[in-house]
Design a protein around this nucleic acid. Structure first.
Lengths: 101, 101
DNA sequence: TCAACATATGAACACATCCTAATATGTTCA
DNA sequence: TGAACATATTAGGATGTGTTCATATGTTGA
């Protein structure tokens, strides 16, 4: 892992390292969600949702699509979707301690 | 993903979301490293290395083993190792944009 | 065009975080 | 025991981050 790769990778983790932001991303894993839906689902203020969505957009973890009055957020491509899904699965799967030292 | 799982998972990502810490963990993926080795490999002060190692220990991403004057850091079990290795692989693998919208 | 809705932005504050410098703790060997 | 080495801790300052409140922008339908 080069110095630069490390910095980029850390930036990705940093974005996912805030509970509200992680929930926003997780909520989009099953398909596009409007800001209103996300606000309700995550249970924080609309303003705060928007602030976090801006960061996630800037980090290319979510993309924005307007449809009428609503703006929908979704993962930008299948690579990111696969990566995040796998990361979630790995981290959330029940731990097997049988091989611990 | 429950509220609580989200918080725990975010905490893991937060720890990996700092470049120096991420490099410390990455440096341990190939096997135990002494604090001295890590200090040299990551290129930051010994004090700072220790500070970050403490956080990684607290978050159970690394475990500590003393051997004489040296203290070695290593991943605590194969689950964590597998998880981190996969995460690195996924994130660092060259992106395939052919299916982007 | 105007009101109502949906989302985004800007400013400000409290708090967390990273870092450095100095020092403490623990270990080995003479 | 004491000097030298290896690692950990503490305190402090600078900077960053999450949040709220107020307000701006963009969109629809009457």
């Amino acid at each position: 892992m080069t110095q630069d790769e490390g910095t980029q990778l850390a930036e990705l983790f940093r974005l996912l390292g805030e509970p509200n932001r992680l929930r926003l991303v997780a909520a989009c894993l099953d398909g596009p969600r409007s800001v209103g839906d996300l606000t309700e689902e995550v249970g924080i203020s609309q303003s705060l949702v928007s602030q976090h969505l801006r960061l996630l957009r800037a980090g290319r973890l979510l993309k924005q699509t307007r449809s009428g009055r609503n703006v929908f957020y979704d993962l930008p491509d299948c690579h990111v979707r696969t990566m995040l899904t796998n990361m979630m699965d790995h981290v959330l799967e029940p731990e097997d301690h049988s091989h611990e030292e």
